[in-house]
């Protein structure tokens, strides 16, 4: 496997793939411009106040967020005021849920006794629809960031927790035996064996939770907030700014898309062993 022998053909296939990839891209995404164009024409014809044409939505989005000074990456003050608090809550809540969910999940997955005590509580906790706790959190934390983060943490922790329990519980017995035979300590077993072995499951839970985090961020900001993307949404609604409202909706779609894509990219890197091992067997 010397580089000299493998590189040229690889380069050739890469180039060929690039041409092929372009046409593959066209066959895959052609529908999107078609739909957007049809929507533009349709909404112009209908001229309904509720359904502004896409061009108007884009113009409004530009005006709202992207017409700022170059020093701020063209973001307006409104954009910074909306995006930053929302993203901070989103990632903050998600990070807290990750640490708690994985930590508790691995502990529950590895200890049958502990799981026996806690299992019914977990089952019940995950069955409560997270928005149902918003009224309670409003009373306890008052309106504001704490309430929003609490809502996100409570809502997204369940998929992480359940998947971590599952992943840690079903680590191959022979993996654990091997670790024991070679005298690996507790910490080493946790970090070198249990966490990697449970990795694919944990990541599946994390991906579900990212999508949930966006939903709960918006919800908690709609219910009670003075800044953030969700607040912007209810603000545009109150002012009957429909183009602005549609911009927020599109923005949230893009946010979800970007989050999911970047998450998949990270997962691909971290779990490359898992994907490739499955392909070869």
């Amino acid at each position: 496997m010397s580089a000299a022998t493998t590189l040229p053909p690889a380069e050739v296939t890469k180039r060929r793939a690039r041409g092929g990839r372009l046409s593959a891209l066209v066959t895959r995404v052609w529908l999107i411009p078609v739909v957007v164009a049809a929507w533009e024409i349709g909404t112009r014809q209908a001229a309904s106040a509720y359904f502004p044409p896409p061009s108007q939505i884009v113009a409004r989005a530009y005006e709202l967020w992207f017409s700022g000074p170059a020093a701020h990456l063209f973001l307006t003050d409104d954009a910074l005021g909306d995006f930053l608090p929302s993203l901070a809550r989103l990632f903050g809540g998600w990070a807290v849920a990750c640490v708690l969910g994985i930590g508790l999940g691995v502990a529950l997955g590895r200890s049958r006794a502990l799981a026996g005590y806690i299992d019914p509580l977990v089952e019940f906790g995950r069955a409560i629809p997270p928005p149902a706790l918003v009224p309670l959190f409003i009373v306890i934390f008052k309106l504001g960031t704490e309430m929003q983060v609490a809502t996100i943490v409570y809502g997204v922790i369940w998929p992480i927790l359940i998947n971590s329990i599952d992943g840690a519980r079903y680590v191959d017995r022979l993996h654990m035996d091997t670790a024991e035979v070679f005298g690996m300590g507790r910490a080493q077993r946790l970090f070198r064996i249990i966490l990697p072995a449970a990795g694919p499951k944990i990541f599946a839970g994390l991906r579900l939770s990212v999508a949930l985090a966006v939903i709960l961020m918006v919800l908690s900001e709609l219910v009670g907030s003075t800044d953030g993307i969700g607040y912007q949404l209810s603000y545009t609604q109150m002012n009957f700014d429909l183009a602005g409202m549609w911009s927020v909706i599109v923005l949230l779609g893009v946010l979800g898309l970007v989050l999911n894509a970047s998450f998949l990219a990270v997962e691909r890197r971290v779990l490359s062993w898992h994907r490739r091992a499955r392909q070869t067997t």
Binding site: V218, S234, F240, L242, I249, L252, G256, L257, L259
Partner: peptide
């Protein structure tokens, strides 16, 4: 593209 749009975000629009 449509799937990640949180349904909650559509509520204000639907309400109108």
């Amino acid at each position: 593209f449509l799937r990640p749009i949180p349904s909650v975000a559509l509520l204000p629009l639907i309400t109108l």
